[in-house]
Design a protein around this nucleic acid. Structure first.
Length: 366
DNA sequence: TACACGTGGCA
DNA sequence: TTGCCAAGTGT
């Protein structure tokens, strides 16, 4: 027989809990650019940017993005390369490709008005259960749960829930808790307050319980186990990949770049030609063979590694040997490679790893 | 269900 | 220095 994870929910005085939480948020909420109005488009953009990303990181990206694409229609009609450029450095790039795809659907199918029903909004690309609930509650005032990592941590403690929050199946338990406790009067503030509380007070390590507005409602605090919660299993370690990359110049001093495929890691971003090398042979020799086999290009690579770069993703570690060389620009015709001037490089979206490659290579060469 | 999918900050 | 993230979603 399974233990009931929500066995403490009846101990919460719902009205008092909502009041304590919402009045705290009204007093203490941070002044953030996406809180200036409730434009569903802006709420949507902010929620996508904030996925797995810190508020301080998002703020400048949000401001620039809204300057460049002020309305849903502007984003729907924009060029994808320009959209990716505005996202450059934020990571998880499929977020913005899905966002633009979904925005195009709203532009065409809903006359540019973000839908306000769970069914319609959840069907949009990149809009999962969290984002659907966030937009519905924050922009439209609907009493829908918006369960993110903060909410799971906060409710793990308040309701003393010892479920592993890293397991996908756990989320529905927390949604049930939110549905039972959410303010019908102000679901927007209720949801935002839970997340703000998680960000400012009920933090992962050493929560500031003495400053917490809902301390008196908190089962974990009452039992003194707030630091034991939430339960969260570890992720597996990243795997290492040995890479070689080529910074190739044409005779008129342009730089050779390549657009990555439309699916998978760093999809549709630009890069310097590179691949995963074997460790048993010379990286330079393998790189020359790769350029010939993959792109049909005969490059002359300088002897010696220009620089070594390590780049850590969440799930992969790239160790990159960078080589410099030259190609005849006429041989690039009808290949996947293009040559652009150094000034033009700035208009292309590169992953941070390849920004490092260019920065260090240009420093060594000059 | 478990894993792919980025990045910069911090203990 | 190394792990562990931080307002998740798609497959």
């Amino acid at each position: 027989m399974k233990e009931e994870p929500l066995k403490h929910i009846e101990t919460i005085d719902r009205e008092e809990f909502q009041e304590d939480l919402i009045s705290w948020f009204s007093r203490e909420q941070r002044d953030l650019p996406w809180r200036k109005d409730r434009d569903p488009y802006k709420v949507w953009v902010s929620e996508i940017m904030l996925q797995q990303t810190r508020v301080d990181t998002v703020i400048p990206y949000f401001n620039r993005f809204l300057e460049k694409f002020p309305t849903l229609d502007a984003l729907a009609l924009a060029d994808e390369d320009e959209v990716l450029k505005a996202w450059e450095g934020l990571g998880y790039y499929s977020r913005v490709r899905n966002l633009q795809s979904a925005v195009k659907e709203v532009h065409e199918k809903y006359e540019g008005i973000v839908p306000d029903t769970p069914k319609e909004i959840s069907s949009l690309k990149g809009v999962g259960p969290y984002t659907a609930g966030a937009i519905l509650s924050i922009a439209y005032g609907k009493p829908e749960p918006a369960v993110d990592g903060n909410v799971m941590r906060v409710f793990s403690r308040i309701l003393s829930i010892w479920l592993d929050i890293a397991k996908p199946a756990s989320r529905k338990v927390f949604e049930e808790a939110v549905r039972a406790l959410i303010s019908k009067q102000n679901p927007s503030y209720f949801n935002q307050a839970l997340m703000e509380l998680g960000a400012l007070i009920c933090t992962p390590t050493s929560p500031s319980c003495l400053l917490c507005p809902v301390r008196e409602h908190c089962q974990a605090f009452n039992e003194g186990v707030q630091k034991e919660l939430p339960i969260k299993s570890k992720k597996k370690a990243a795997r290492k990949m040995n890479m070689a990359a080529a910074v190739l110049f044409t005779e008129d001093n342009r730089v050779v770049i390549h657009k990555r495929p439309g699916t998978g890691l760093l999809a549709n971003l630009w890069e310097f030609p590179n691949f995963e090398v074997g460790t048993s042979r010379s990286g330079r020799k393998q790189l020359g063979e790769f350029l010939e086999a993959e792109y049909g290009v005969a490059a002359s690579l300088k002897a010696g590694v220009i620089t070594r770069i390590q780049h850590v993703f969440s799930h992969i570690i790239w160790d990159i040997e960078v080589y410099a060389g030259s190609v005849e620009s006429t041989t690039l015709k009808d290949t996947e490679l293009i040559a652009v001037s150094e000034e033009e490089l700035e208009r292309f979206a590169f992953p941070v790893s390849h920004q490092k490659i260019w920065k260090e290579t240009s420093e060594v060469i000059k």
